Simulated scan of single mutants.
Amino acid sequence: MRSTQRCEGMNRYVKDSLSFSGVKLIELIPQLDKALERLRNKVAEEDFRSNNSAHVLSTQLRQLEKHASTIYTDNVFQLICVEIDRVGGLITSRIMHLNSCRVYITSSYNNDEEKECTTTYYHRESDPRVVCSCKLYECEGIPCSHLFNVMKHERMREIPLSLVLKRWTKQAKSEVHSTIPKENMPSEAAWRFKLFK
């Protein structure tokens, strides 16, 4: 569904950027190049702003929020802050201590009808893991408020690496580019030739 939305969004951007009425093919290609250049510039500006700006910390879980601001892009950081803010509306009704983990049962303070959520914290010293039954992390790739609630109870100062999806980090693009050897990268002209072949 997301890939379809992305494709539809790109189609909409191209339609908004180009004037199709009476345009010949030879005129369409330069217009398309300009539209793509504007899109690349917008992405470059967002990357620059994300990597070179400091966020104003606004939640009560400042250590976790500060850590999130250093690893996530601006857009994802805003979503993370919403989830951190929601921690204040959660009640932890029970904590069960098992051999290798602790299970937290939480529910919403404001909504009595909401189902309880089960969050499990596996306390391994080298790589702690937190798993939630609401499955927001598995669906969206960002930690939910239940996970942040457990991090608060466990007095964590950083988000565990198991909850950091690389595609939402500031370094996601740099890691992709560094995996391709420079001698194997095609020139832009060769890439365009293959594209229109």
Results as ranks from 00 to 15, higher is better:
residue 156 M to W: 06
residue 154 E to V: 06
residue 104 Y to S: 06
residue 67 H to N: 12
residue 11 N to W: 08
residue 196 F to D: 01
residue 179 T to D: 09
residue 169 T to W: 07
residue 176 V to R: 09
residue 165 L to T: 13
residue 131 V to R: 00
residue 100 S to V: 07
residue 161 L to R: 11
residue 5 Q to P: 02
residue 68 A to Y: 03
residue 174 S to T: 09
residue 17 S to W: 04
residue 91 I to Q: 07
residue 109 Y to K: 15
residue 150 V to H: 01
residue 104 Y to D: 03
residue 150 V to M: 02
residue 8 E to C: 10
residue 144 C to I: 02
residue 168 W to L: 09
residue 128 P to Y: 02
residue 87 V to R: 03
residue 78 Q to M: 14
residue 175 E to K: 12
residue 111 N to K: 15
residue 20 F to N: 05
residue 1 M to E: 08
residue 18 L to V: 14
residue 72 Y to S: 03
residue 10 M to H: 02
residue 181 P to M: 05
residue 83 E to T: 07
residue 111 N to P: 04
residue 119 T to G: 00
residue 7 C to M: 10
residue 21 S to R: 09
residue 74 D to L: 14
residue 99 N to K: 11
residue 59 T to L: 03
residue 27 E to G: 07
residue 157 R to A: 10
residue 161 L to G: 14
residue 172 A to L: 05
residue 28 L to F: 15
residue 153 H to L: 14
residue 90 L to S: 00
residue 89 G to Q: 08
residue 126 S to F: 12
residue 50 S to R: 02
residue 61 L to K: 01
residue 171 Q to P: 00
residue 13 Y to C: 06
residue 195 L to S: 14
residue 33 D to H: 09
residue 5 Q to I: 07
residue 32 L to P: 08
residue 58 S to D: 11
residue 15 K to G: 00
residue 35 A to S: 08
residue 184 N to W: 10
residue 11 N to S: 13
residue 122 Y to A: 06
residue 75 N to P: 00
residue 15 K to E: 11
residue 121 Y to F: 15
residue 185 M to K: 13
residue 177 H to M: 14
residue 171 Q to L: 06
residue 122 Y to G: 04
residue 56 V to D: 04
residue 178 S to C: 06
residue 82 V to M: 09
residue 63 Q to I: 10
residue 93 S to V: 09
residue 146 H to A: 01
residue 10 M to S: 11
residue 58 S to A: 10
residue 25 L to F: 12
residue 180 I to F: 11
residue 144 C to R: 00
residue 30 P to H: 01
residue 170 K to V: 07
residue 76 V to I: 12
residue 37 E to G: 01
residue 1 M to A: 14
residue 180 I to L: 13
residue 100 S to K: 13
residue 99 N to V: 12
residue 116 E to H: 10
residue 58 S to P: 01
residue 78 Q to L: 10
residue 135 K to C: 02
residue 48 F to I: 06
residue 191 W to E: 03
residue 21 S to N: 11
residue 66 K to I: 00
residue 55 H to R: 15
residue 53 S to T: 14
residue 78 Q to V: 10
residue 35 A to D: 02
residue 101 C to A: 12
residue 21 S to K: 11
residue 76 V to R: 05
residue 160 P to Q: 04
residue 71 I to Y: 02
residue 103 V to I: 15
residue 167 R to T: 11
